[in-house]
Write a protein that binds this DNA or RNA. Structure first.
Lengths: 339, 339
DNA sequence: GTTGGCACTCAGGGACAACAAGTGCCAGCA
DNA sequence: TGCTGGCACTTGTTGTCCCTGAGTGCCAAC
């Protein structure tokens, strides 16, 4: 019994099952793929594959479907991610290039990814701690209230309102603004806290408490556990094929609404050129144990600033989805650079 | 045959059907509500109600369910929106008050609304054209590239990148910044275009083209058809009761992903203290013809700056949802004032 | 190691009967 | 005039039985 053929049989089963959504039997297999052996031989191979846990039978008289372990082996066999065709690439480029600002770039990316894969797409905003400072603006709202606006190199903008006990004059505010920018412009967010820690000491005791409050607020903003943000699109695709998630659309939708859960999912990827796949129960999130996730990081200049993902049924077209995820991640990274 | 009793019967049918999700028969009706008449009498009333189109039978041997027209009459009979209980109100307040910035306020509101109503909630960001300018910031990215950042009175921030043909010095940029803010600060967005139209003329011919580009970009930003933004939450609630949308979760989900559609839905409300209800086919959006929508506007000082809504099956608890929508709209309006 | 053959299993679907829920209508009553 | 009890009728639901077809496992032969 050849090991190679067994792998070929597994691959054929996965391909057929992904295409037809029905358990595939030995007869259909030899008909559709030219395996050059009889159905009885394939049956023997299938029995072996089942013993090893790669495929399973819904019931005795049915064909086989791949298990999570089977998909895993299948995916690991995919030696290289297929490249998109030129027209596909051009479509992506055209679609993303019309965007004006970061919100629009992210929004278009997530929609595009959902459309390409016909699955649910998730895109994380460029992570604040992983980018650098372009500009800090202080806008006076009241004599005792200032809005701190941080503009990141990725185009992301964060704001926060600070109240003081003692009023601050426009002159002092201008000076603080100038000093802060001098200290932090171009710095990586993670280094900002150190850079401005000494600032309050430069100011007269009377002004110092307000400056301390400003600096503290700025530190909070850039530390930003809270500031990670994700966008999803294509939830309707979950219901496109009802059998995808037989009775389980709800837990999946619920998981997708929990941004904390999503961030955890996205966060588990190490930065890499290749998309990462997690299949079924490989996901730590219990609600997504019937789903598979294809993730990748993106960022300019080989520097990951965020992650993105596609979520779908374990029975998905892994090759195509990996290609789409990689393509969108690349274009997104390029947009970040361009900004 | 008393008209009052017929209305009471309709109300009882709606209430029972909303509660049980099953066609309600004459027998069950007299059992559960003390109507003080026999089931035969109720049957006569039901026949009349059916003639008038307020209720319908799924099939001959089944009970009655309300039609869209029936729900409409029921809703119109609700003379006043129930007030929320004090603990409910306190919960809302606590939930919303911890928010730091606008994004967080909107995010929390939409989640809260989804949780209160157990339906899909939609919240529109404060509309740019309906708010005023707090501050305009120009951040130099390159000598020929500036990021225009507009901060609105509602806390909303919009950005946009402008490229010039001729480089602009920091000095000129500072002057433009100062002049723009002098012209537009505190102005309503709709009046901004007029206020800055004359600005380029103040500058030397050499600088003028860049200033024109800046002014044009600013005008585009505040005109902002494109800039309306909505957030949704609670999509998982669509699948909570499978019978809510028998085979139709998909079109509803699709409609909810089309922000253009949502904005249209939200936009059709006239500003009013009372929530507006649109039932089933009353929605212009065909995909939502099996859904009902409860909308309201919100805004500080009686000035509407945005809208919000709850989307659910026609068979929803209208009284409760109207109360929740109104409550969240009020708190949201208050938050806008506070900013 | 591969193949054809054959007995076995089991989900799916049609036919049919019994049942339950609910209706419409009518004659009688206040 | 309006309400009520009663009764025949309709129809979806449930359960049983049976048949069919797809697919398997295994064995003997090549």
């Amino acid at each position: 019994m050849s090991e190679d053929r067994r792998l070929a049989v597994l691959r054929a089963i996965v391909e057929d099952y992904v295409a037809t959504h029905e358990p595939v039997g030995s007869r259909a297999l030899v008909d559709r793929h030219h395996l050059n052996v009889s159905s009885a031989t394939v049956r023997n191979d299938m029995a072996a594959l089942e013993d090893e846990g790669f495929i399973a039978q819904p019931h005795t008289s049915a064909g086989r479907i791949p298990t999570d372990k089977g998909y895993r082996l299948f995916v690991d066999q995919l030696t290289e991610v297929r490249a998109l065709s030129t027209p596909e690439r051009r479509a992506i480029q055209n679609f993303l290039e019309g965007a004006f600002d970061l919100d629009e770039v992210v929004d278009r990316s997530v929609r595009l990814l959902a459309q390409l894969t016909r699955q649910v797409a998730v895109v994380q905003y460029p992570s604040l701690p992983r980018s650098s400072v372009r500009h800090v603006e202080l806008v006076s709202l009241l004599p005792t209230r200032v809005m701190v606006v941080v503009i990141a190199s990725t185009g992301r903008i964060e704001q926060r309102v600070v109240d003081f006990e003692t009023p601050m004059s426009e002159d002092v505010l201008a000076k603080v603004r100038q000093r802060i920018n001098a200290c932090v412009q171009g710095l990586r967010m993670v280094d900002v806290a150190d850079a401005i820690a000494g600032l309050p000491a430069e100011f007269a005791p009377l002004e110092r408490s307000a400056v301390v409050a400003l600096v503290a607020s700025l530190m909070e903003t850039v530390a930003g556990q809270r500031e990670e943000r994700v966008v999803i699109s294509g939830a309707a695709n979950l219901t496109r094929v009802p059998s995808d998630f037989p009775l389980t659309v709800q837990p999946v939708l619920e998981a997708l609404e929990e941004h904390v859960v999503l961030l955890k999912l996205l966060g588990e990827v190490e930065a890499s050129e290749q998309p990462t796949v997690r299949i079924g129960a490989e996901n730590d999130v219990q609600q997504l144990s019937t789903a598979s996730i294809v993730t990748s990081s993106y960022g300019g200049e080989g520097q990951a600033v965020g992650n993105l993902a596609v979520v779908g049924p374990t029975r998905m077209d892994y090759a195509a989805n990996m290609a789409s995820v990689r393509a969108v991640a690349r274009y997104l990274g390029r947009m970040m650079d361009a900004q």
